[in-house]
């Protein structure tokens, strides 16, 4: 019961903190003080209290987009295990639902973007559609590897299964897997080198440009949903990359939170020391990630 409670509290409260830590890390690299850690929370509360402006060309789907996207993301958050504990909802085959819930979220974000009739948003949607197609194989290669290693069809067992031994026996496979997953973690969450969450008006943008016309609470939903997606996929990644478990409940939660903070710092470092890729390079990197994970699968299945 306490585990369930901790799970829900972390899912609801921690995602914006990840953004705060990334921002602070980047500020440290740039020699600035940076915004407070809690700045993303302040932004969210401000947006939720503000009024909205809707473009007169839009219809109901523009308003429904952020709602359905956030609802799908929260539902996916109930399927992912955190720390060393199974998720609130887990059943055989839940990883498929997990993957497809993000598909649902994406469908409505893009449909809302196209509804505005703006070229910028159309461009963003086209890019999102293309790149997320290329991410799909990587995710499924990873799921296949995890399914085979853990001998289970449920995310909870797949991810909380003791991976430390596997790192010793099949380390090569897991290294490839982690590399591939880190690439799609950055790509799916629109971080550098794929996308820059801080610029709003560049033609090379993907996610930010799709939500250009949203305002007020709807925009708050979008930002919160994006933070939660980073948190969920981050947790997925952490389970494989840092599979340290003690068996003690509270200690495991502590390890999990520290790992997530470390992940946020890592993302911040990557963002500070890398430049954004040219748009034509992005598909190449995503295909490379697929191939890495495909190799990982070959090593496991042989």
């Amino acid at each position: 019961m306490t585990d369930l409670l901790i799970h829900l509290v972390l899912i609801i409260c921690m995602p914006p903190l990840m953004l705060g830590i990334i921002g602070k890390t980047k500020a440290a690299f740039a020699g600035r003080v940076g915004a407070p850690y809690l700045q993303p929370y302040f932004d969210l509360f401000k947006l939720l209290r503000k009024g909205s402006v809707f473009s007169s060309t839009t219809t109901w789907i523009f308003r429904a987009g952020p709602i359905i996207t956030l609802a799908a993301t929260i539902t996916a958050a109930l399927l992912i295990p955190l720390g060393n504990h199974p998720s609130p909802i887990s059943f055989a085959g839940d990883m498929i639902l997990f993957a497809y819930l993000f598909g649902l979220a994406r469908f409505f974000t893009m449909a809302a973007a196209l509804d505005t009739g703006s070229s910028f948003e159309g461009m963003g949607a086209a890019r999102e559609a293309t790149f997320s197609c290329l991410v799909e194989p990587t995710l499924f290669f990873a799921l296949i590897v995890l399914c085979r290693i853990s001998g289970s069809l449920s995310l909870s067992t797949m991810l909380t299964h003791s991976l430390v031994n596997i790192w010793f026996s099949a380390g090569a496979s897991l290294v490839l897997l982690v590399a591939g997953l880190f690439i799609i973690l950055l790509a799916e969450n629109c971080r550098i080198p794929f996308d820059d969450p801080n610029t709003h008006l560049e033609l090379t943008m993907i996610h930010e440009v799709m939500v250009l016309d949203h305002s007020g609470p709807a925009f708050g939903y979008i930002l919160y949903g994006a933070a939660m997606k980073l948190f969920i996929l981050g947790a997925f990644f952490i389970h494989i990359a840092l599979p340290f478990k003690t068996g003690d409940h509270l200690l495991d939660w502590g390890i999990f939170i520290i790992s997530m903070v470390a992940l946020a710092i890592t993302i911040g470092i990557v963002e500070s020391i890398m430049a954004r890729l040219r748009l034509v390079r992005i598909p190449q990197l995503l295909v490379a990630a697929s191939i890495l994970t495909a190799f990982s699968m070959l090593l496991i299945l042989r």
Binding site: G103, M110, A113, L114, T116, S132, C133, V135
Partner: peptide
Amino acid sequence: GGLAIACFVRVYGIAFGS
């Protein structure tokens, strides 16, 4: 599945949206 999403978002967005 991913490609189908791209394909039909395009149909909805272009034909019904905007």
